[in-house]
Design a protein around this nucleic acid. Structure first.
Lengths: 237, 237
DNA sequence: TAGTGGTCTAGACCACGTC
DNA sequence: ACGTGGTCTAGACCACTAA
């Protein structure tokens, strides 16, 4: 059974997305929602907290919950979103090419970043992303073989996240990311369509499961003109 | 009086930061914390939720709350953090130069991004940031005069956020940000120490108050080698 | 003054992990 | 079987906004 607060969140989020409730309007009061959903106020408040965190509403003490302007561009790169999820919201033609997939025994750098024992089997996956037939993103993934033993080129060409979450039942929980700009390496210049670009935006991320296992390390290189990152952030404290 | 859940959060966060409780260890159980702080379990859980959101802990059903590895680099650029708060955590020499501060009547682009009436008085502020005597960051701010009438060069050289929040009692609530890479303009090349860099990382952000007023629009240009962005993100859904 | 959201409580039952 | 966190309840009191 779906959780109550999740159901309330989903319903209200949908009403905001479809503009049944428009930006600037107030949501029904917490007491009204409590009655409408035949639940307790704390449960309603959990749903509203989620809406607030995700930028749907702003709560105003003494007034109510205002619906915020929806951004046209749902690119939550700041959250945990994979390339496939991302490309769905882009109009351009998108293509993924698996340039290499192999299983190695961890050593050196790879062993260090994945924090595993020397010799642990690790998948190394290279993927080239084409937008409108231009190779503008180059991803290198390292993941523990143990957790995704049946990985194939076909799966890798689709969405790894789908496979992990839906096929294997793994729960991705959180990630740490870093974004920097670096010089393009010889390999990057050889494999990507860089034109005269000499630098790349590099996104390095470590992905963790719910049990805090570090499971995947990714380095994603973007041609600068094709890189865009949007974020919604609340002031903490 | 400080809120109870906030107090519990502060205390536990401190114990984690100072490594009284080390990474990998479990926090006391929710029931234990409930007793220790003489409160209810829901209140403890609010504090733990904050810790989880901010990357301090990971909750494991049936087990407890594990303390996560603390990143050495507390650069929450992803949250809402101002340059001054940021520079405090950097070892380098940091300097801010106000290159221009004026109050204009809004028109054209500025009026559009701030979503105000034509002719509304708006502060325009330009600041150059030097790290180790190199001008590597160039900020342009636009803010509603009405909300910060007493702005001076001295305040702008310090921290605008401090002034707004502590002096004026304004509550900054949330922001929308965009990060892209763009060609350096002639003005940028003239005022910044760019060396041979032709491109800049541009962070555009809109800052909103608690009453959802759009209050500030900022364009921050960074020399690519001095730009770094780190993020902790939880998987939603 | 009435209605709103913000905090807090004491208890219940469930789902999961460990032993 | 026991302890853990996850969800939910019904109610209380407070702080703020608006009429």
């Amino acid at each position: 059974m779906e959780k109550k607060f999740q159901a309330i969140y989903d319903l209200l989020a949908k009403e905001i997305q479809t503009e049944k409730i428009k930006a600037g309007q107030l949501l029904p009061s917490e007491n009204e929602l409590t009655e409408r959903f035949m639940t307790s106020r704390e449960t309603v408040r959990k749903a509203l907290q989620l809406l607030s965190q995700n930028g749907y509403i702003q709560k105003l003490q003494g007034k109510g919950s205002v619906v915020l302007e929806q951004d046209k561009l749902p690119l939550p790169v700041s959250g945990l979103t994979s390339f496939k999820e991302l490309s769905r919201s882009m109009s351009q033609k998108v293509e993924t090419i698996v340039t290499s997939l192999s299983c190695e025994n961890a050593h050196g750098l790879i062993q260090q970043v994945l924090q595993c024992e020397e010799g642990t089997p690790v998948w190394e996956l290279h993927r080239l992303r084409k937008l409108d037939n231009e190779a503008v993103i180059y991803d290198k993934d390292f993941l523990l073989n143990e957790l995704a033993p049946g990985l194939t080129e076909e799966i890798a060409g689709d969405s790894i996240y789908d496979y992990l979450e839906q096929e294997l039942g793994l729960s991705i929980s959180y990630a740490k990311k870093e974004v920097v700009v670096e010089e393009a390496q010889a390999e990057d210049k050889a494999i990507m369509d860089l034109g005269s670009y000499q630098q790349l935006v590099v996104v390095r991320s470590a992905v963790y499961l719910e049990d805090t296992t570090l499971f995947q390390y990714t380095e994603s290189k973007h041609r600068p003109d094709k890189f865009r990152f949007v974020d919604f952030a609340r002031r903490t404290k």
